[in-house]
Design a protein around this nucleic acid. Structure first.
Lengths: 118, 118
DNA sequence: CTGTCATATTGACAACAGTCTATACGTCAA
DNA sequence: TTGACGTATAGACTGTTGTCAATATGACAG
C-alpha cells in the first residue's frame, strides 16, 4: 500500500473561464461551447463515466483498483484517466508508486450550472 | 412563415429509466452509464451545444434559422438535430414545410441530477 | 399536376477515439 | 545497483463521427 504524499502538477495549464449564464438562457459563444463540449465529450464515454463514478463514490481510488471493476487493460485505464484529467474532471496525486485519483467537484458543478442548474 | 400544427412522432421509441442517485453517490451501473454517456456524447459537440443553446434561448427555432448562426450546411444541421433528437434532448414539430425544434428540459434536468445536482 | 421550397437521406471521405500489445519510465526494497 | 512493481507512453488497428455534395421526400401554391 502507498506511503508518502507528493502532489502531481496540474496536468494541463488550461484555465477555464466558463462562468456565465446557463445555455438555456442565452446562446453560448463559440468559445464557451467548445470548452463545455470538451468536458461533456470527456464524460460521454461509458467507461469514463463509470470511472468518475467509482472515484467519486470512493473519494479516492488508485489506478490499480480501476482495472478490475471497469474490465479494461491498464493502458486503457491510463488513457481514460488522462482524458478526464485534461478535462479537469479528476486530479491525480502521486504517493510513492501509486497514483490516487479524486474528482474535482467544482468541475461537475460548472457543467450542471451551464446545463441550466438553478 | 409556417402555418398549421402537426406534432411529430416521438422520433425514437427509447424509454429512458435513468432515474436514480447521482453518480457521485454510488457507482453507476454499466447500463445507466451507457445511457447517460449517450446523452453526454450528444452534448459533447460544440455545434450541437450551440444548437441546443440557440433553441433553448429562443424557445422554438426552425431548421432554416439554424444554418446561418451555426455556419454549417443544411444536411449537417439535419444530422445534428437527429442526433439530439435520438438522445431525447430536443423534439421537432412539423408545421407545414417547416420543422420547429424545442428542447426537452426534463432531459437536461436528468443530466444535472445524475451529475450530482442537489 | 407541376413546380418550388424546407427538410431528410445517401454516400463518401478524412479525422478522431477506444482498445490492445509491447515497451519505457519511476519508485521502492534489498 | 538491481530487481520488482505501478503507471505512462508509443504504435497499430478498428470503428465511429463530423462534414459536405447530390439526391430524395414531402408539403404547399398555382
Amino acid at each position: 500500500m502507498p506511503a508518502r504524499v507528493v502532489t502531481l502538477k496540474p496536468p494541463t495549464g488550461e484555465e477555464a473561464p466558463l462562468c456565465c449564464a446557463p445555455l438555456t438562457d442565452s446562446p453560448l459563444s463559440a468559445a464557451d461551447a467548445a470548452e463545455l463540449a470538451a468536458i461533456l465529450a470527456a464524460l460521454g464515454d461509458p467507461v469514463r463515466l463509470r470511472l468518475v463514478s467509482l472515484v467519486a463514490a470512493a473519494g479516492e481510488v488508485c489506478s490499480c483498483n480501476l482495472e478490475a471493476p471497469l474490465g479494461k487493460s491498464q493502458p486503457t485505464i491510463s488513457h481514460h484517466t488522462r482524458v478526464l484529467t485534461e478535462a479537469g474532471l479528476i486530479t491525480g496525486e502521486r504517493r510513492g508508486r501509486w497514483t490516487w485519483w479524486s474528482v474535482v467537484p467544482e468541475r461537475l458543478a460548472v457543467v450542471r450550472r451551464l446545463l441550466g442548474g438553478e
